[in-house]
């Protein structure tokens, strides 16, 4: 076998081994070492670090962001993230709120402020914008810090009359500064997530 083909084959098998390890959630080397960092960069760039657990082990309830916009005269109206020009764009923009459930409070705050900024761009007459995060499902017992526990109803629950609806989880209100950038208006509860 020509040496070039041998090299090509070795690289291919090595890549597949990394892919298999990535799918099994096994880190080859700790990222505290140089070789671990190099490998992390490589697998990140090539997509070999993906786990492919689509909708696994289960499908989670959906979350969304809605916006209550108020102008200087007190007039109110609403908007949402599906302002794209195509179904593909709306799928991407609309699902952004789902990211919030996997991040800490500070990151969630920055995401919400960024969304409010975009809304201030879209609605130049807006004075304040309330970013409301909602979940689609039914309320469950439990929850904490004023945020209800939500899940999508099972088929049996649905048959028993429990219909899913959009339920408020938490919100933040922003007002525009002189440069039309969003700054948070803190209520007495502070940041709630």
């Amino acid at each position: 076998m020509p040496i070039r083909l041998k090299l090509y084959l070795t690289c291919a098998i090595g890549q597949l081994a990394l892919v298999a390890l990535g799918m099994a959630h096994i880190g080859v080397l700790p990222t505290t070492t140089l070789s671990g960092k190099v490998l992390r960069v490589y697998t990140g760039l090539t997509g070999a670090d993906k786990s492919y657990g689509f909708f696994a082990p289960g499908v989670r309830h959906q979350e969304r962001a809605t916006f209550v916009i108020t102008d200087a005269s007190g007039r109110q109206w609403e908007d949402d993230l599906e302002f794209g020009d195509s179904a593909e764009a709306n799928l991407r923009l609309g699902s952004t709120a789902n990211v919030l459930r996997g991040v800490d409070d500070e990151t969630a705050f920055h995401f919400m402020r960024s969304m409010a900024d975009k809304m201030f761009q879209r609605h130049p007459s807006a004075q304040t914008i309330k970013v409301q995060i909602q979940a689609y499902g039914i309320k469950l017992p439990g929850g904490g810090q004023g945020v209800p526990a939500i899940d999508f109803p099972t088929m049996a629950e649905f048959r028993a009359g429990k219909k899913p609806q959009w339920i408020d989880l938490y919100s933040l209100t922003f007002q525009a500064n002189d440069t039309r950038q969003a700054i948070a208006v803190w209520d007495e509860r502070g940041m709630v997530k």
């Binding site: 993230l81 794209g84 020009d85 195509s86 764009a89 991407r92 923009l93 960024s114 900024d117 975009k118």
Partner: peptide, 15 residues
């Protein structure tokens, strides 16, 4: 399908 929203998706001041 994404061309009209390139700025919203990928821009510095995107969503």
């Amino acid at each position: 399908s994404l061309a009209a929203n390139v700025g919203d998706l990928y821009g510095r001041n995107g969503l």
